[in-house]
C-alpha cells in the first residue's frame, strides 16, 4: 500500500530501493547463482575429461556470433533461434488455444452430466496415456503436412488435463452455489456465466498449467521428427551438421521458454481468480 501512495516519485525511490532490496534478499538471490556456477564448473570439468561434449566456454565461443548476439538473423534458409522459437510458439498458441476451448467445453459437459462422464471416461483414460509422438503418423496421414500435424499433436496432448481438471471443478462445485442459483431462478445462461464458470476457474487453470507444459514438450519432439521450422527442427538440423554447441544453446532456450510459459499461465490464473 505504501508504494502505491508515493508512486509520483517512482524512479527515485525505485533506484534508492535497489541496494536495500539486494541486501534484504541476498541469500535468496545468491544461492541460485552459486548453484549455477557450480553446475557450469562441473559441466566444464566433465567436458574436458571426456572430450565428448563441448564445455560451457566452448558453447559460448561457438555460438556467440550470430546465434547469441542476434537471435533474429536470417541468412537464406538459416534463421536465428528467435525465429525458430517463435515458429514453435505459434504452433503451440494455435494448438493450445484449441485444446483450451474444446477441453473446457468437454470438461464442463462431462462434469455436469454424470452419464456422459461414465460413457467417455474409459475411452479418454486410454487415449490420455498415448504418448504425443505416437500420434504423429496419424496426424501426418490426416493433414499431409507437418505444420497442421504439429498443431494437432499439441492439441491432443494438452487437452486431457484441461478436460479432467475442468470436469472435477464442475463435480466439486459446492451444492450451496447451485442452491443459490436455484433459489434466484437463474437462467441456464446466467448460471453458466455467473456461477459455474467463476467457480471452476481454479480447477480450470490447474488443467491449463499442466496442459501448457505438455504442449511444449510435445512440439519439440514433433518438430524434431518432421519439420522445416521451429526449435525442434533447429536442434535436429544442428545435430545433423555436428554443431553440438548449437544444440546445447537451443536446449537452454527451450527450458527458459517452457519456464516462462508456465509462469505466464500462472499469472493469468491469478488475474482471473484473485480470490483463490
Amino acid at each position: 500500500m505504501a508504494t502505491r501512495a508515493d508512486i509520483s516519485n517512482f524512479p527515485a525511490t525505485f533506484l534508492a530501493n535497489i541496494p536495500t532490496y539486494f541486501q534484504k534478499n541476498a541469500r535468496r538471490l545468491l544461492a541460485p547463482v552459486i548453484a549455477l556456477v557450480v553446475a557450469l564448473a562441473l559441466w566444464q570439468l566433465f567436458a574436458q575429461i571426456t572430450q565428448t561434449l563441448p564445455g560451457p566456454i566452448q558453447v559460448v565461443q561457438d555460438t556467440w556470433d550470430p546465434l547469441i548476439i542476434n537471435p533474429f538473423y536470417v541468412e537464406g534458409e538459416d534463421k536465428g533461434l528467435g525465429w525458430q522459437t517463435l515458429a514453435s510458439l505459434q504452433r503451440v498458441a494455435i494448438g493450445y488455444s484449441l485444446a483450451a476451448v474444446v477441453g473446457i467445453l468437454v470438461g464442463v459437459l462431462i462434469g455436469a452430466f454424470p452419464l456422459l462422464y461414465e460413457a467417455v471416461d474409459p475411452m479418454f483414460q486410454v487415449l490420455r496415456t498415448v504418448p504425443p509422438l505416437a500420434w504423429l503418423p496419424i496426424a501426418l496421414a490426416i493433414f499431409k503436412n507437418s505444420g497442421p500435424a504439429g498443431i494437432f499433436i499439441i492439441f491432443v496432448t494438452a487437452i486431457w488435463p484441461i478436460v479432467y481438471n475442468t470436469a472435477v471443478g464442475v463435480q466439486q462445485m459446492p451444492q450451496d452455489y447451485k442452491n443459490v442459483a436455484k433459489v434466484l431462478r437463474l437462467s441456464s445462461r446466467e448460471y453458466f456465466f455467473d456461477i459455474l464458470l467463476p467457480s471452476i476457474v481454479p480447477y480450470m487453470f490447474t488443467g491449463l498449467k499442466l496442459g501448457i507444459g505438455l504442449a511444449w514438450l510435445a512440439i519439440v519432439a514433433a518438430e524434431m521428427l518432421r519439420g522445416d521450422t521451429g526449435i525442434g527442427f533447429f536442434i535436429w538440423n544442428s545435430y545433423n551438421s555436428g554443431a553440438i554447441s548449437e544444440v546445447i544453446l537451443a536446449l537452454i532456450y527451450i527450458g527458459i521458454v517452457g519456464f516462462l510459459l508456465d509462469k505466464l499461465v500462472g499469472f493469468l490464473a491469478t488475474l482471473v481468480s484473485s480470490d483463490k
Binding site: P174, N179, V183, R185, S199, K276
Partner: peptide
C-alpha cells in the same frame, strides 16, 4: 413445487460466491 426468490434461504455456510 420449485425453489424461487419468494422463499429466500440463508444457508448455514453462508453460500456467498467467493469471487464476488
Amino acid at each position: 413445487t420449485q425453489p424461487g426468490p419468494d422463499r429466500m434461504v440463508v444457508f448455514q455456510n453462508y453460500s456467498l460466491l467467493p469471487w464476488l
